[in-house]
């Protein structure tokens, strides 16, 4: 589903990713772990199409298509979803209005008809229940005054509503206490699907206790430096990144 080959990315003049290669099949959950500054967030932004990240070499193929040729909103319509580390606030725009606008934008881009207000409301309510997102939250301006846990829950709610084919979760565990983490992880697990691939980006092993990945990649200095099964996370937790970096150096 996703094929990243020898990816080099610069921000300004600074090279961040230096030859990253990664492949994910439908139904799989992959985790990317790495120390701060290793390029984890850059990878997530490049996949979502954020401006300011220049691909200087390599390729990203998504379902056989050159992903880099698509605008961010086109990627979204084709099923790429990024749950952000820092969801932004948009004052004056209710969460419900935002969800409806986004959903119908994606539908329209796919040539589907708009879902009317009642249809959207029903859909959102059904999904919101399982993620413990209240009606009141949906009426508030998007992310304005939301707690860290509420913001992350809303990201996962959007994932549930948009039903992406490729979901990228960027540090979804950051800023969450253990109860909030469990709730979010449960939400993610219910979205595991044979047709859906997930890329879970995290600094800590903690999240992977709840979202158990099929494969773990260690990202350091802009490249994948180690790969393995879920047990790799425990090793990292026990011995730290320093150890692995020394091994590959």
């Amino acid at each position: 589903m996703l094929e990243i080959k020898n990816l080099h990315v610069s921000v300004g003049d600074k090279p961040i990713l230096k030859g990253l290669t990664l492949s994910i099949q439908p139904g799989q959950v992959h985790a990317i772990m790495g120390p701060n500054g290793s390029g984890k967030s850059t990878l997530s932004y490049v996949l979502a199409g954020r401006a300011g990240y220049d691909i200087t070499e390599g390729s990203i193929t998504y379902n056989g298509e050159d992903l880099t040729a698509l605008a961010p909103e086109e990627r979204a319509a084709k099923g790429v979803f990024l749950a952000m580390q820092y969801p932004v606030e948009i004052p004056g725009v209710t969460t419900m209005t935002f969800l409806k606008t986004a959903l119908n934008s994606q539908r329209r881009a796919r040539g589907e008809s708009d879902l009317d207000a009642i249809g959207v409301l029903k859909l959102v309510r059904a999904k919101a229940k399982t993620l413990n997102v209240s009606e009141e939250m949906l009426k508030r301006a998007l992310n304005v005054g939301f707690s860290g846990g509420e913001k992350k829950r809303l990201e996962i709610l959007q994932m549930a509503i948009f039903e992406p084919k490729l979901a990228i979760l960027d540090e979804t565990d950051s800023g969450l206490d253990i109860d909030a983490l469990r709730l979010v992880a449960e939400g993610v697990n219910t979205l595991r699907d044979p047709a859906r691939a997930m890329l879970v980006i995290t600094h800590y092993q903690r999240l992977l206790d709840y979202i158990v990945p099929d494969r773990i990649h260690v990202l350091a200095r802009g490249r994948i430096v180690a790969e393995g099964g879920k047990e790799l996370a425990l090793e990292l937790e026990a011995r730290g990144y320093e150890h692995i970096l020394k091994d590959v150096a």
Binding site: R50, P72, E73, A77, Y86, F98, A102, S105, F162
Partner: peptide, 15 residues
């Protein structure tokens, strides 16, 4: 903010 715009774009809302 650029991040507000990007957030919308990334959710499929054109510029």
């Amino acid at each position: 903010a650029e991040d507000q715009l990007f957030y919308c774009l990334a959710r499929g809302i054109p510029q």
